[in-house]
């Protein structure tokens, strides 16, 4: 258990995740109040990585529920094992029906999905509900009971309350807004692209094989690129890939003139690559003036 946000940041750093002070404070408060934490931000800023690092830091097993459109209770919470129930019925043709019907809907025939697994787990776990914005509104409403009371209701069994108080983290890319009811139950963190210094530190820890000069050049270049009106801005993982790509090409520093052909590692849309290529010429001229 952490004693301060600084302590939490240190633990996460040991697990390879660098967090800023504001986000560390918010996460620390969420852990202290035992409340779910909703992490929002653009794709690739490290929302899921934060959950993974926290699970390692807290030494908890990670249970992950990846959300998508059409996700329902039978895939997220529980389902009955129909095949096993049928087998049980086949075997029990001569038995008393009253006994069987109770037996058929017992935990033995229950298939636990990630949410139920987190609730029933005897050891402490971290439940990551990833990309919740991709799921439907019905599913979001269903989650309210779990988030507020750490319990779920199964009509045939009743209410099941968590045994080990899981840490619950939810992530979202903001493709849709959530209801006030859900937001009220969570502590909210908004992660954005890291500052230059932080990104240099991240690259230093994630790709130690890279030369310091190259890391600095790449981070400055990516920082500049993020100021352009692109369809998708480069994420931290793309910065790392881009730096590694330049390293593979034996570059020890970044020259605007040598980047043609490597930009598709950084940007994912041809329109964006074209925009950046156009801008590179200007940056190159500016750089030559400076020299």
């Amino acid at each position: 258990m952490q004693t301060s946000p600084l302590d939490l940041a240190k633990q996460l750093e040991d697990e390879g995740y660098l967090i800023d002070q504001e986000a560390a404070t918010t996460l620390f408060l969420a852990l202290a109040l035992e409340k779910p934490c909703l992490i929002e931000g653009p794709a690739g800023v490290g929302k899921t990585q934060l959950a993974l690092a926290l699970a390692r830091a807290e030494k908890r097993r990670l249970i992950r529920l990846q959300c998508y459109e059409g996700l329902d209770i039978s895939k997220a919470l529980y389902d009955w094992n129909y095949a096993k129930q049928l087998l049980r019925l086949q075997l029990a043709k001569t038995e008393d029906w009253d006994e069987i019907k109770v037996d058929l809907f017992s935990e033995e025939f229950l298939l636990s999905r990630p949410l139920l697994e987190a609730i029933l787990s005897p050891e402490p776990v971290l439940l990551l509900i990833d990309e919740l914005d991709k799921s439907d509104e019905e599913f979001e409403s269903f989650l309210l009971e779990l988030l507020a009371e750490q319990q779920v209701s199964i009509p045939e069994l009743g209410t099941l309350t968590s045994k080990s108080k899981p840490i619950v983290l939810l992530t979202s890319n903001n493709s849709r807004d959530f209801s006030d009811a859900l937001r009220r139950r969570c502590i909210h963190i908004y992660l954005t692209y890291p500052s230059l210094e932080r990104e240099i530190a991240i690259l230093g820890s994630q790709a130690p094989e890279l030369a310091e000069g190259l890391i600095k050049d790449v981070c400055e270049f990516v920082g500049k690129t993020r100021k352009l009106p692109l369809q998708k801005l480069p994420s931290v993982s793309e910065t790392i890939d881009f730096a590694r790509a330049l390293n593979a090409l034996q570059k020890v520093e970044l020259n605007y003139g040598d980047l043609m052909g490597t930009l598709s590692v950084l940007l994912k849309y041809p329109k964006d690559v074209a925009k950046l290529e156009e801008r590179l010429k200007k940056w190159e001229t500016e750089a030559s003036y400076k020299r």
Binding site: S4, T25, L29, A32, L33, D180, R184, H188, Y190
Partner: peptide, 30 residues
Amino acid sequence: QDILDAQTCLIRYPSLPRKQLLKSLLVHRP
């Protein structure tokens, strides 16, 4: 509940910056 949480944390963690603490607990939308 937000108010209760805020009061609890203000008492429990007096060394944390108040603004940061209250922003974390009272703001639910970016």
